[in-house]
Amino acid sequence: MDFHYNTCPPGSVMLDAAKLNSNPLHDDCPFLFIIGAHRAGTTSLYQYLSRHSDFRGIRLDKGPLAGDTYHFTTGRYRRLSWERYKSFFPTSVLSGEKSINMFITCEAPRWLFESCGRSTKVIILLRNPIKRYISAMDKKTSQEILAQLFTDRQWYSKLKQETKMNYQNIPSTCLNLYNQLNTNNLYYGIYSIHLANWLCNFPPENLLVVNSEEFNRSTSDILQQVLEFVRLVPFTQHKLDIVVNVTYNYQQKRYHTDNLMRDAINNLDEFYRSYNRQLFDMLLWNSSLVDWPV
């Protein structure tokens, strides 16, 4: 990664030696957190890992809600006791959580570091923000998507003006208005802001960023890479074939492209391009290999 910590706002964990070296509140934290963009494959990855003999997922029968406790999100943190939170997880094997809301919750990385310190790993899945935006508008027509996009852009511009922040130049500033923004589909896809907030407040060596499209194309390779990152024994080839091809197939939905949908795609392309460029610079991603607008 290539991240400039001088862009972090005052009070960030990575700028405060006392916070960075303090003892965590708990020594029995979940082993792993899988977070990232909505519709980016977080549920699939969680299901895959849950087939490992040394890792057991929770709520696996809940479909898209598998693995999610919402503990480290606005409105829940500190309201649920740690004892109650830990009761979700098995004690006999390693376990972890899957949450898409943690990625965009400004306080989440600080809360996680405060609770767990360096004892847990975080995997972040990121999908092309244009495809993610449209996928999140499940069952809406192209006309409805375009109308919602117009509303989202107006709302986001208004919030930027009200907070007097220039997010083109300050990518590490997380917009701490989650209750207002959790219905704004555009904000989810501004990955440079959310990732920078995590880098400012959580040790980078404990973070792994995975490109969702690559995960979809090369599931076996990415899964083995994830196992290496979390220091679990790799699957045998036989086990890997069973897990990837039988357990849970991650499929990105296709959408019909008419003139209105093309207008929406072009509008989203224009909106996300500069933010994607910031993200690619942070992650040292090659734009010729990752097919996103930059």
Score class of each variant (00 low, 15 high):
23 N>T: 15
281 D>L: 14
54 D>L: 14
97 E>A: 07
66 A>W: 10
60 L>G: 06
124 I>Y: 02
288 S>K: 12
46 Y>V: 10
1 M>Q: 11
270 E>T: 15
129 P>T: 04
49 L>E: 00
40 A>H: 00
73 T>P: 01
143 Q>W: 07
95 S>A: 00
250 Y>I: 00
42 T>F: 00
279 L>T: 08
176 N>T: 07
190 I>F: 05
163 T>W: 04
158 K>Y: 06
228 E>Q: 15
276 N>G: 05
233 V>C: 12
280 F>P: 00
188 Y>V: 06
271 F>S: 09
236 T>F: 01
132 R>K: 12
124 I>E: 00
115 S>K: 01
93 V>C: 04
256 H>M: 10
126 L>A: 05
4 H>E: 13
87 S>W: 05
18 A>Q: 15
152 D>V: 06
29 C>V: 08
153 R>Q: 15
268 L>I: 12
152 D>A: 10
166 N>K: 03
291 D>V: 09
138 D>M: 10
286 N>R: 13
132 R>W: 04
82 W>Y: 08
45 L>M: 15
214 E>N: 14
254 R>N: 15
168 Q>F: 13
119 S>G: 11
43 T>C: 00
49 L>R: 01
98 K>M: 01
284 L>M: 11
159 L>M: 10
91 T>P: 04
95 S>H: 00
186 L>Q: 06
259 N>P: 00
56 R>C: 06
237 Q>W: 03
286 N>D: 14
151 T>I: 12
14 M>Y: 01
1 M>C: 13
257 T>C: 05
111 W>H: 08
118 R>L: 10
234 P>D: 02
163 T>G: 03
250 Y>R: 03
272 Y>P: 09
227 L>C: 04
91 T>M: 13
126 L>T: 04
140 K>A: 08
189 G>R: 04
103 F>Q: 00
256 H>I: 14
244 V>I: 14
153 R>M: 15
158 K>C: 07
17 A>V: 14
202 F>Y: 15
144 E>D: 10
30 P>R: 05
275 Y>T: 09
212 S>N: 01
189 G>M: 06
37 A>D: 11
205 E>H: 14
